[in-house]
Amino acid sequence: MAFSLFTPKNRIINLVLNDHSIRFVELKQSDPPSAQKWRERFLPPGIIKDGKIVDIVSLTSNLEECIDEWKIQRRSIRFLVPDPLVIIRKVSIPAEIQDDEIKGYLYLELGSSIHLPFEEPVFDFYPLSDNGKTKDLLLFAAPEQQVMEYADLFSSLKLNPVAADISPLALYRLYHQLGHTGQNEILFTVQFDLTNVNLCIFEGSAPVVMRPLALPFDSDKWEIKRDSLGCMDCKYTGDADELVVQFEDVFREINKLLDFYRYTLNNEKHDATKFLLSGDHPMLQAIVDEMKERFEVPVVQLSFGAESNGKTGSVPANLLLSLGLALKEVH
């Protein structure tokens, strides 16, 4: 019985929910990353909006069907906190605060010297530097009520949430694991999905600024069905010019964030050195091509070949975020 820990049924399930889908990946191995199995389901509009659960009854019903169909009953899970709920902020604290006291200190300062756009946050931090007088940290925060709504929902369905993460870190973890990181790299990640885009700039492995954007989504103008692998197959049936307008808005926001990073965060010392583009948008290749035309910064996608093959074949690009989540350690 001692070896039962190593059987597939005890592997952690990696669950990613956003405004338009539920996805999961079960990791087979981490080096190189390989999926044992994966699945996804389209979520009709109005169930989750801007990361917040709007229709808990419909979401519960959809999750129950997924759990049953995917045979993931009573499993431990990791999940992503939806991008629109997450705030990343750089804060400075006195250097004399010991490492094991930092969380308590931040908790006391929230609402007084550290201001967030919501009360009662859940938060974590990432140490950046210590100059002897102050310590610089990255603070990751989200509204506790909304995060716990997801955790409580999973628990009510007999799933066991053991870790939460944010999407830029999950994506970067996979990028790093695949050996793509460069020296002195300033990586600008663009997670381009069907209903939202998430922009994030990394200094080394630290995500220093993040900006989530909602995309207009009219389900009447999209034809969505399952392909032969059980994945979402999305085709746009509306006026192509409407998508062009959406993309233009996103490119403008990318330029704004580049300028903010260059002039406000960085005193013109550094620029982004690379774009990493990923996501589930069916026009992703056209978006990559357009960005290569517009920006002088190199644009790359995660190259993922035969090493990602599991029982279900090569993992589709729109499930790479779940695979990055699967690489998170559970402490």
Rank of each mutant, 00 (worst) to 15 (best):
S34L: 09
P82L: 08
K49M: 14
V162Q: 02
I53V: 11
A151W: 02
A95F: 05
P82H: 08
L187G: 03
P84Q: 08
C200Q: 00
L323Y: 12
N318M: 11
D100F: 10
S30V: 12
K71Y: 07
R262V: 09
Q177M: 06
I88L: 15
P44F: 03
D165N: 07
H331M: 15
P44H: 12
G182L: 15
N18M: 04
F79R: 08
F140D: 02
F202S: 05
T237W: 00
I56M: 11
D193V: 06
L229C: 10
Y175M: 00
N255W: 08
D289A: 14
A206P: 01
L137Y: 04
F260A: 08
P82K: 02
K103E: 14
R78L: 14
P94H: 09
P117N: 06
V57P: 02
Q301N: 14
K133S: 11
P45A: 06
L194R: 01
E268L: 12
D50H: 12
Q73A: 15
D241W: 11
G324W: 11
K256F: 06
P161F: 02
N196F: 13
H281F: 14
G204W: 01
T273S: 13
Y172F: 10
K135E: 07
W222T: 03
F188Y: 02
R89E: 15
V147W: 04
D271E: 07
R89C: 14
D124T: 14
L276M: 03
P94N: 05
D124W: 04
K90Y: 05
I48V: 11
G230K: 02
F125Q: 07
P84A: 10
A326W: 04
C200G: 10
F123M: 13
L323D: 11
E293P: 01
S156G: 04
L153R: 00
D218L: 00
P94W: 08
S303L: 13
